[in-house]
């Protein structure tokens, strides 16, 4: 970009969500991304059938965080056999809420002129980490103390970048904000905050082990069922 090393938010590579075998020739691959404060489903539709496909539409089932398409699916021209088209579907989080198992499961229905197809995907929780998720230091300390110990979950992250600055920068690009940093007995401790789209705060302590690619992540949250999904997201961000 010419502006130096500007880190972007982590986006997983696309994977196949609907195989052509199950989609009567329609193959859909996709991933989720957060860009400029908005969530997108980035999709590739491929026609592996022998007939033209048209009249595409998409719908989500109710889900844990109210994810819903913010606009109709824009595939405006018919898709010829062996043709692919990329589409970026903007999402919002004001849809109907229903707790899913796993929490980040999303059931999707796609229709075209041939049939309606259903598939399930899981989304990485960091697409729900909002840009104003940096908690005030005083609030962080009070909240950390206030959340009971039984709501603390501990995880091990392997393949963590070796120095606290790169860890902090990488995470901040995906809206995991470092509130404070301390070094105790040679260990770097990062205190971090995350806010989800539904207003849930997650407090983190990331302890980097000197000379080791492994680090310890402790998460405190009033809704502890989100912790393991936040861990998976943080681990994916740090590995990539």
């Amino acid at each position: 970009t010419g502006t130096g090393a500007v880190l972007g938010a982590y986006v997983a590579p696309k994977s196949v969500w609907l195989h052509a075998m199950k989609g009567k020739g329609l193959e859909i691959s996709g991933t989720f991304a957060r860009r400029s404060g908005a969530v997108f489903m980035d999709l590739v539709f491929t026609n592996r059938a022998l007939q033209v496909m048209s009249d595409f539409a998409i719908q989500f089932n109710r889900n844990s965080f109210g994810l819903a398409p913010a606009a109709p699916l824009q595939i405006l021209t018919p898709l010829a056999p062996n043709q692919s088209t990329e589409v970026s579907l903007p999402l919002n989080t004001v849809g109907s809420v229903m707790k899913m198992d796993p929490l980040n499961n999303l059931q999707v229905a796609v229709k075209n002129n041939i049939d309606v197809f259903y598939f399930s995907v899981v989304y990485p929780l960091h697409i729900l980490f909002v840009e104003d998720g940096k908690m005030e230091r005083q609030m962080f300390l009070a909240t950390w103390k206030d959340i009971p110990n039984e709501n603390e979950a501990q995880f091990q992250i392997r393949e963590c970048p070796p120095n606290p600055d790169s860890v902090s920068n990488k995470l901040q690009a995906s809206n995991v904000f470092t509130v404070a940093r301390r070094t105790v007995d040679g260990q770097d401790m990062l205190y971090q905050s995350i806010k989800l789209t539904n207003g849930i705060w997650v407090l983190a302590e990331l302890r980097l082990q000197p000379g080791s690619p492994s680090s310890a992540l402790s998460l405190k949250c009033r809704a502890p069922e989100v912790s393991s999904f936040v861990f998976q997201a943080v681990e994916a961000i740090l590995k990539n």
Partner: peptide
């Protein structure tokens, strides 16, 4: 001097977590 005591509070938190 804007020391609000928070720097010290974070140091105590980190200490307590490393050497409980």
């Amino acid at each position: 001097e804007l020391d609000d005591g928070l720097d010290e509070a974070f140091s105590r938190l980190a200490e307590s977590r490393t050497n409980p």
